[in-house]
Design a protein around this nucleic acid. Structure first.
Length: 686
RNA sequence: GGCGAGGUAGCUCAGAUGGUUAGAGCGCAGGAUUCAUAACCCUGAGGUCAGGGGUUCAACUCCCCUCCUCGCUACCA
């Protein structure tokens, strides 16, 4: 459908998770793109609902609350307010910002669940989960700690070992302990409701891979294809959890269970819309149920599966709802070459940015749009920030507006001079006035915001070139009429620039409107050269941007380097001592000096080397997960330490008869343990 | 290894359905200019489009293979 045929738009931005402050990655990923899109639509006088809200359920929040000794509600209250403020300060113009702990959301989400339940859409399955008898509750994966079966790390979580990175299931853990009471949890039956996604495969394949093959981004289609066409197909997903923080499952016999966050979070968009409509006294339903509504979800790439697979499946099953017309997911933004991380504090926090750069919201908006991770992961660097500020915003955009206004004050006391006869160069400039808004609009409609922004800058360049070509500071001496025409046109270019820049740089556009004494303009006015009428008073020039000095960015880089240093020290504490053992325990281990006779990469494996070693007692085969640290030739002929009485274990079809011992350095790299000098193969170690 | 996304000038990136000398911005060099936050404007240098095969009259664009980066996933006794 042609975008212009839609009657109204519902635009959503991913609900930010209320367990930490917002950083530049959030902004670049979905809030700035969605805000640009919506501001543009409003400027076009289209009917838009732009909704968002805090995502306040889930295990991570309960863990954070427990750690800080406060209630989950207190955690989400804190971050909800903080995020809401950051959004407001950066001009993210939600029509409504709600939260998933709101009553209306609990009702909406429960309603959805009940509807699907009544339709018999859920598979009820009873599985065994760990239960903490002392605390009297089931334990989320993250609440169980134990020894990692793969690397022996003693504080692995039930879902993942942070040391070796392997993903685990709670029952894999050796010696599991509840993080709530410290007691050993027991396995207990629990019933959950699963959404059988496999049933939607055909519908989803058609809808996404066929119907939207041409208009969705390749990264989004690729991710969907990877889910839809994976060997095992879509797996049923549990839509409920054993927990007390969240929305109670509205079904008999579901006491102590809540809806899975990912079931309730997207429904939050609907709740937020309802809340907004109620406040406005209008009907929310057309925004979600009318075929003429264009629904667009702005998200980061980590959310693709939920917004393209699970949520549409839910909406489709419920029936009566429109499906997203597009899900323009962005990739990730890195910071100075490293992945942004809340837990490692490797981020530029919005509230800290505002303290360090007051009044420079638009600069960050500009940089994050110009370098947005639209097609691939991108890197934010302070050097790039400075460069874009100084040589683009200051030198091109700000400078052009300043020149036009200063000249007007210098030659015409701040009054817009009259338009006289037009030369070719004037006509070209006026033609550009018409073309740019169209080009910019076309790019925005296609979600190509960085391209759209570059056209905005080209428009400003056109203004600079126009002044350079017409040289009004020269013509004022012998041809004041000519100068008047030139400045009239230059000022009107600047006024038009404000209109097209507004979605990207709203604070700047506001300053420009104020300077020109304009208000109430929108996209429909763009392209006109009579926005500033002859004789109108222009306010004195006010600089729109100022230079960012070397010291300023150096300070930010230093701050990050400090963080990095602290992270390195914090992340790599020397592993604490394990529990005391007896000599007999130790004596059970049979460690020997052995010689590596042969080594070869294990076919079809990235991490394994297949070693053949002389243990003195015979030759054995050992598979060792060191292929990423050593080449076969690094090992061949070396004497190393091996645990030879470890029970053999079949890996990838081959028996591995023992374990080569290595030292692991702070950074995770491995070192061989070599005898000080040549030693007989099979020598014992004690 | 499987799946997905990328690998285009020093840097950041554009390049529907294959077709004249591969583009932009920044950076760099030179020039011009002085209204402007020494900014603007003009010109130029810079790329065997990751590498190798193939299809074609013609490939950055299609096919195959290899290498590298990122994400998800499997193997680390």
């Amino acid at each position: 459908m042609n975008p212009k045929n839609f009657k109204r738009y519902t635009v959503t931005a991913a609900l930010p998770y209320a367990n930490g402050p917002l950083h530049i990655g959030h902004l670049a990923g979905c809030y700035i793109p969605s805000d640009i899109y919506v501001r543009y639509l409003r400027s076009r006088e289209r009917d838009v609902a732009y909704v968002c809200g805090s995502d306040e359920h889930g295990v991570a929040i309960t863990i954070k609350a427990r750690k800080e000794g406060i209630s989950p509600q207190e955690v989400v209250d804190r971050y909800h307010e903080m995020m809401k403020r950051s959004f407001a300060e950066f001009g993210i113009s939600f029509d409504h910002y709600s939260r998933t702990s709101a009553k209306i959301h609990h009702e909406t989400a429960s309603g959805f669940f009940e509807d699907l339940y009544q339709k018999g859409e859920f598979l009820e399955q009873t599985t065994q989960q760990y239960y903490d008898e002392e605390a009297g509750q089931f334990l989320a994966d993250r609440y169980i700690e134990g020894t990692c079966p793969k690397c022996g790390h003693e504080h692995a979580y039930g879902d993942q070992c942070e040391k070796c990175g392997s993903s685990l299931s709670p029952t894999d853990l050796i010696n599991p302990k509840s993080k709530l009471s410290g007691s050993t949890p027991v396995l207990k039956d629990t019933k959950h409701w699963f959404l059988d996604l496999a049933r939607y495969t055909d519908f989803l394949k058609n809808w996404i891979l066929v119907d939207h093959e041409k208009d969705w981004k390749t990264n989004v289609l690729g991710q969907c294809r990877s889910w839809l066409e994976a060997g095992e197909g879509l797996q049923a997903r549990s839509m409920t959890r054993d927990m007390d923080w969240g929305i109670p499952v509205p079904v008999e016999g579901a006491e102590g269970k809540v809806l899975y966050v990912w079931f309730d979070a997207p429904i939050g968009y609907i709740s937020s819309t309802k809340e907004w409509a109620a406040e406005k006294g209008i009907d929310w339903e057309p925004y979600w149920k009318d075929e003429g509504t264009k629904l667009v979800h702005f998200i980061g790439k980590d959310n693709i599966v939920f917004h393209c697979i699970i949520f549409p499946a839910i909406l489709k099953t419920h029936g009566g709802y429109v499906l997203p017309d597009n899900v323009p997911a962005n990739e990730f933004l890195n910071l100075e070459g490293d992945k942004i991380s809340t837990s490692r504090s490797w981020a530029v926090w919005l509230h800290e940015y505002l303290e360090a750069f007051p009044g420079k919201q638009d600069v960050l908006r500009y940089v994050l749009t110009a370098n947005a991770p639209e097609t691939k992961d991108n890197d934010f660097t302070w050097k790039d920030y400075q460069l874009r500020n100084n040589s683009e915003l200051v030198a091109i955009f700000g400078n052009f507006v300043n020149r036009a206004v200063v000249l007007t004050h210098k030659f015409y006391n701040g009054l817009v001079p009259a338009l006289g006869d037009l030369s070719d160069i004037d006509r070209d400039a006026l033609a550009a006035l018409l073309e740019f808004p169209e080009k910019i609009a076309a790019s925005i409609e296609r979600y190509r915001f960085r391209e759209a922004l570059s056209y905005v800058m080209d428009f400003a360049r056109t203004g600079n070139k126009y002044l350079a070509d017409t040289e009004p500071w020269k013509s004022i001496k012998d041809n004041p009429e000519r100068t008047a025409t030139v400045l009239n046109i230059a000022l009107n270019i600047a006024a038009n620039l404000a209109i097209v820049a507004e979605p990207f740089l709203p604070h700047t556009a506001a300053k420009m409107y104020k300077m020109f004494g304009l208000s109430g303009l929108n996209w429909g006015d763009a392209g006109k050269h009579g926005l500033l009428k002859t004789g109108k008073t222009i306010q004195p020039a006010e600089l729109l941007f100022d230079k960012v000095e070397d010291e300023t960015v150096a300070a930010q880089v230093n701050k990050l380097m400090e963080t990095k240093k602290q992270n390195e020290m914090a992340v790599a504490p020397v592993t604490p001592m394990k529990d005391i053992i007896t000599y007999d325990d130790f004596a059970k281990l049979d460690m020997r000096v052995v010689k590596v006779l042969a080594a070869e990469p294990m076919p079809k494996s990235k991490k394994l080397l297949k070693l053949s070693v002389d243990t003195g007692l015979g030759t054995r085969t050992v598979l060792s997960g060191v292929a990423e640290h050593f080449k076969p030739e690094d090992l061949i002929g070396k004497q190393v330490v091996m645990l030879i009485n470890l029970a053999p274990r079949k890996i990838m079809g081959i028996d591995s008869e023992g374990m080569i011992l290595m030292a692991e350095d702070k950074d995770g790299s491995l070192r061989l343990l070599l005898p000080g000098s040549e030693t007989a193969n099979g020598s014992t170690i004690s």
